[in-house]
Nucleic acid binder design. Structure first.
Lengths: 216, 216
DNA sequence: TTCGTTGGCGTGCGATGTACGCCTACGACC
DNA sequence: GGTCGTAGGCGTACATCGCACGCCAACGAA
């Protein structure tokens, strides 16, 4: 049966996007810990092992989820603004997409490298950096620094947001042991995660501006 | 039996540090996935459930490991150098300690918030920042930006180092689709993780210097 | 000598990922 | 229109995980 690529005996009834949507539904409803081959299969109306017709295993299921969330990011290069503003826009878009499903942060962090959507984002960011004058090693460092900050921020938002219980515990610490940390925690409770992210990114971008004018 | 704190019927034969060391031995030998209540108990010469006499559960076992690794960090404030050099030293020390056991990175990231050792590090860093003139909100943002970069860097080193297979795959990509990404990946393969971290940190520190002189 | 406290062990349960073999629907071909 | 091979989907079964629970044994205090 040569060349019979389409119109196979029984066509797949589910797309990979369907699977990803079902998995996200489970995660959003019952939390990341509830993401299970069984639970996703159930969400799709399949028996447990039926899911394996669409996914190689748990690993690929997680990748599908991560890529589906990142696929929602608009990766067109922003038209307006200087290069710091453009990079900032790209970063904010990615962050906003992830914020739609906060529980998937660990999956994004883990599977980022193999997501096509993440590659598109990186390519767009590199275009902005290149147009700004970053070349060679400086561009490598710039992208990696942005990525590090981005990933770290997502992680900190997920576990250990300034508005969360961790900071509250720090703020309530007896003043004797960690005076500065306690004071900083108290102040930090008044900073929204978005503002924290934005201002930290500004700091990093200022550093990149400095690096650009001093090619060391 | 009042006040009978020491000299109990059968004194604990293992300290929490012993447990952490055993867990680290398992991780270093067989990988993080091999970290199991059973495997750690076996490493200690206990039966599986015997381990529960020393640890509340898997959660606390992981915390013990994370804290044990971070406890090796020298958190004294560096005596010499300007404030950027001091912050840099503190960051490098933390990174070096984690690099001793690369597999524990996910544990550190997850349990950082509840580690006393991490608090000591934060307090030391805040001392340097405060002495440099960072106050109020600016200090909050500075610490969080440093933390984000640090956490992100660790994560990127763990999964997705520039010298690892992920970057190699990117570098081998057909030039048509992601030209800048492929070129950047090729360049990146020649950057050691240490150098990447150091140079990215310099960028961030420059941004902090700028923020200090322009209190916005 | 007795007793209560505590370290440590063994069994067993529910949940997870998935290997493996089976049945069945259906398009392609004669 | 009958036949057949392919691929979708299911069910069973298993190794492994964390851990609840109850037991025994050792040992200091009385």
């Amino acid at each position: 049966m040569p060349y019979a690529v389409k119109a196979m005996p029984r066509p797949r009834s589910l797309s990979q996007a369907d699977v990803a949507v079902a998995a996200l539904a489970v995660i959003d409803r019952d939390g990341l810990a509830a993401l299970t081959m069984r639970s996703v299969a159930g969400e799709l109306g399949l028996a447990t092992m039926g899911l394996y017709r669409y996914v190689l295993g748990r690993e690929q299921l997680e990748q599908l989820v991560a890529d589906h969330v990142l696929a929602a990011v608009d990766t067109r290069v922003p038209a307006r603004g200087g290069w710091p503003a453009r990079v900032s826009t790209l970063a904010a878009r990615l962050r906003a997409a992830v914020a739609t499903h906060p529980e998937v942060v660990p999956l994004i962090v883990t599977h980022r490298a193999t997501c096509p959507a993440a590659r598109r984002w990186a390519e767009a960011t590199l275009e902005v950096l290149a147009a700004a004058g970053f070349a060679g090693m400086a561009r490598v460092i710039a992208l990696r620094a942005l990525l590090s900050y981005l990933i770290g921020s997502l992680q900190l938002d997920d576990r250990g947001s300034l508005t969360g219980p961790g900071t509250a515990a720090l703020a309530a610490l007896p003043a004797g042991e960690y005076p500065l940390l306690a004071e900083t925690a108290r102040l930090g409770q008044r900073v929204s995660p978005d503002e924290e992210f934005r201002r930290g990114l500004i700091v990093l971008l200022r550093g990149l501006e400095a690096a650009l004018s001093t090619p060391d």
